[in-house]
Amino acid sequence: MNFASDNWAGASPRIIDALTRGAGGIAPAYGNDDLTRELKARLSSLFGRDVGLLFAATGTAANSLALSALSPSYGAIYAHQDAHIVGDEAGAPEFFTHGARLIPLAGPAGKLTPEVLEAAVARGSGSGSPIPKPAALSIAQATESGTVYREAEISALTAVAKARGLKVHMDGARFANAVAFLEKADRGARLADITWKAGVDALSLGLTKNGALMAEAVVLFEADKAAEIEWLRKRSGHVVSKAWPIAAQFLAMLENDHWLELARHANAMATALSEGLVESGHALGFPTEANEVFAVLPKALIARLRQEGAKLYEWPAAALPESERLGKDADLTRLVTSFATKEGEVERFLEIVRG
Score class of each variant (00 low, 15 high):
A248N: 05
L220P: 03
M214K: 11
L205Q: 05
S274Q: 07
P298D: 05
H265G: 02
A163K: 15
A227Y: 07
A283G: 04
E228V: 13
L166D: 00
L220V: 13
K162S: 04
H265E: 07
M253K: 12
A215N: 11
H258V: 11
A252Q: 08
P245G: 11
W231A: 13
K242D: 11
D201W: 10
L273C: 07
R235A: 14
V240P: 02
N256I: 03
D224L: 06
A248G: 03
L284C: 07
L260W: 05
A263L: 06
A180P: 04
F294D: 03
R304C: 01
K197W: 07
L277K: 00
L297D: 07
E216P: 02
L273V: 05
K167D: 00
K225V: 09
A215I: 09
E279D: 11
D224C: 05
L277N: 05
N256T: 12
A212R: 12
S274N: 09
V179H: 12
W259G: 01
M214W: 06
N256P: 05
A283I: 00
V200Y: 13
V296D: 02
S280Q: 06
Q249T: 08
G199M: 01
F294W: 11
A212C: 15
F294S: 03
A248R: 07
L166K: 00
A163G: 15
N267L: 14
A178W: 06
A192I: 03
E230S: 11
K225G: 01
L191E: 10
S204R: 10
R304Y: 00
L207H: 10
L213I: 15
A243I: 01
A217D: 04
L273H: 05
K184N: 06
A227K: 13
G285S: 08
K197I: 06
A226L: 04
G206I: 08
W196T: 12
K299A: 14
H169M: 15
A295K: 01
G281L: 12
L273P: 06
V296R: 11
D171T: 15
T195S: 14
K209E: 11
F181V: 00
A212H: 10
W196M: 11
G211T: 03
E228P: 00
E275V: 01
A173F: 01
V296N: 01
N267G: 13
F250R: 04
N267W: 06
I302E: 14
R190H: 09
H169C: 08
T271P: 00
L284D: 06
F221L: 10
I246N: 00
K197C: 07
N267R: 15
Q249P: 13
L220W: 03
R174Y: 08
L182C: 10
N267T: 12
L191N: 09
R233F: 02
A263P: 07
A223C: 00
A226F: 02
K209V: 09
E292T: 09
A217S: 14
T288Q: 01
S236V: 04
A217G: 04
R235G: 13
A180D: 05
R187M: 09
L277H: 02
K225T: 04
G276F: 02
K242F: 10
I302F: 02
H238S: 09
W259F: 14
Q249I: 10
D186G: 03
F175D: 08
K234P: 00
K242N: 13
E255R: 15
A185F: 10
K209D: 13
F250G: 08
M253W: 12
R174S: 14
K242R: 14
L182Q: 07
R187W: 07
E275C: 04
A215E: 09
A300L: 15
A163S: 15
L260P: 05
A185N: 12
